[in-house]
Every structure is written in structure tokens, then in C-alpha cells.
Design a protein around this nucleic acid. Sequence first.
DNA 1: TAGAAACGTCAACATGGCTGACGCATTTAT
DNA 2: ATAAATGCGTCAGCCATGTTGACGTTTCTA
Lengths: 154, 154
Amino acid sequence: MADAFMSDLAARAIAERLFFGYRAFTGDADRVLASRGLGRAHHRALYFIERAGSIPVHELLATLGITKQALTRVLRELMDAQLVERRRDPTDGRRGILTLTETGRALELSLLHAQRARIEVALAQAGPSGREAIHTFLEALMEPEDRGRIGLSL
Amino acid sequence: MADAFMSDLAARAIAERLFFGYRAFTGDADRVLASRGLGRAHHRALYFIERAGSIPVHELLATLGITKQALTRVLRELMDAQLVERRRDPTDGRRGILTLTETGRALELSLLHAQRARIEVALAQAGPSGREAIHTFLEALMEPEDRGRIGLSL
DNA sequence: TAGAAACGTCAACATGGCTGACGCATTTAT
DNA sequence: ATAAATGCGTCAGCCATGTTGACGTTTCTA
């Protein structure tokens, strides 16, 4: 009968590919960010604000999994750079709602496109029939509590 | 005719899954590391030393893509903790060769196993026919120069 | 109207990167 | 034989991004 666990070697094959693959993937955006004097933390905030259209601060905090102090610093820089705007939730004035400015949207899109090129090539290499397996695999890797934070597969 | 580029939405589907998936994957090891007073940087060094059996310092530097100053700090802590040993290359006394101690190997294995459980579940979800696509996709994501640093797929 | 909630901010600190500059042992080239 | 280059190891200072803890303010809610 088969082993209850996968071989260490099979686990290493995935672990290495994830490490190098993720590094290359983030590197594409890092180069664009560096030219604007921003870092990866700014990208993540821009990404999830744009993704949601507008997002309450508490939800962005939960998504990023960082403390409000860490986020505040990032948001202050993004607002100083006129990339993000904060307004109040009309139904609850204590809550803040974040949106991107036009400039912010343009930057977020250029960051996405820097990464899209690589994703496109990689998906093509894997073939059309592999796309579903790749989505399923990555989704299964995630913490269950994060699964509600992502968009649909197709 | 089809678009020359994939849709932004399709790129976002992958980008989000990579972000959350990679975070969960590293989180498994981070919890074990934290209980030993070590960080992710130590794990990466342990991983690639073990993977190679023994490895010259310059090769580990190239693999990790960090400066020797950053690595030295990590190696000093690993050697102080009796997890890593450094000896000289007999054919070129300037070069250092790194190996893990027995304790180091045990720790590296327990870190791998913490991550293996998650990988195993994710691969099972994707189904046996998806495995090749997942390997191909992640490998295609990598920088070409890193492709020689990974083990074979099967 | 008192208390809780949701921030925003300040301060101090940890981790893990970086650059620059030295020094030392060893190998290689002249 | 000696000079230069190589491969480290280390010190110092800095940056980016995270953490706790504490405090003040505004706004809801009981």
C-alpha cells in the first residue's frame, strides 16, 4: 500500500518551486515600485484597495494580516503621494473607507501588468488543461479563513 | 481573434492565490522557527544546505540572492546554535563549505514536514493529473537562472 | 450619558535586508 | 618570489517592514 505521507523529495520539489517562483513574481513588481520610491507593502495595499473598489480599513487590515500601526505608516505614504484617499463611512463615522485616486489606479495597473506577463507565460507552459489544477492547488494551500478574500477562479 | 494578453482578472486570480498560498506555506515553518528563536532567513539557509548535502558559501549566496553580510549574520547564529558547520574546501583553502550537524538536519526535516502536510493536501485537491501542470507552472514562473538550482520534478 | 468601538499616532524595538570599508588567508599571475 | 586577485568574515550604519504598548479622539450604542 502507498505511504500515508508524500515523499520528502516530492515536498521539496514543490517547496523550491514555490520559493523561486514567488520571488520572481514579486521581483517584477519590486522593480517598478523601486523606481517610484515605494516598497512591497505599498503594492499590497494598492492591490487590495483596487481589487475591492473601496474597502474599510478594518477589512484591509484583516486581509493583509498586519497591525494597524504597520498599515498606518504605509497608508500615510500612499496618501502623501496622492495614490490613496481616505473618507468616512457615512453609515458609521468611526470607520474609514479607502479608495485609489486615478494616479493610484494607474500605478496599480502597471504593477499588475508587470506581473501579468510572467503569469501568462507560465500558464501557457502548463497548458490549458492545467489551469484548473493550478487554481485548485494554490487555493488549497491558503488558510481557509483567507479563501473568502479572493475572486472567483474563472 | 483572441487577446494578445490575458485578462487582468485572470492575472488577479493567480496573483491573489500566490500571495495567500505562499503566506500560508511559509507560516507553517515560521511557527516552528519562532519556538526555536529563529527566523525565515535561517530556514532558507538550512534548507539549501541540506538540499545540497554540503554547499560552498558562494553557491549558497547565489541561491539565496542576498549579500554575504546578510548571510554571515544568519550563519553565525546557526553555527552558534550548533546547527551548521563550516569547514574549508581542501582544493581551495579560501572557500568555505557548509554542512548541517545532526541537530540541524533534524530541525530542517521538522520544518519540511510542517510544510509537507499542507503541500500534500493541496496536491491531492488538484488531483493526480494536475501535478505536472503545477510543477510546470511554478517552474515557468522562476527566473531562468534559478532553474538549475532546483531538483527534478519526479 | 457612560462606555465601547474604531481609528490615528507616537515611541521603542526586532528582523532581515542593504552599502561601504577593512583585514586576512590563500591562490594565481608575473 | 612576490604582487595582485580572490573569497571570505566582520564592523558600522542605514532602510523597510513588521511588532507591542500606550494614549487621545471621534463616533456609535446601551
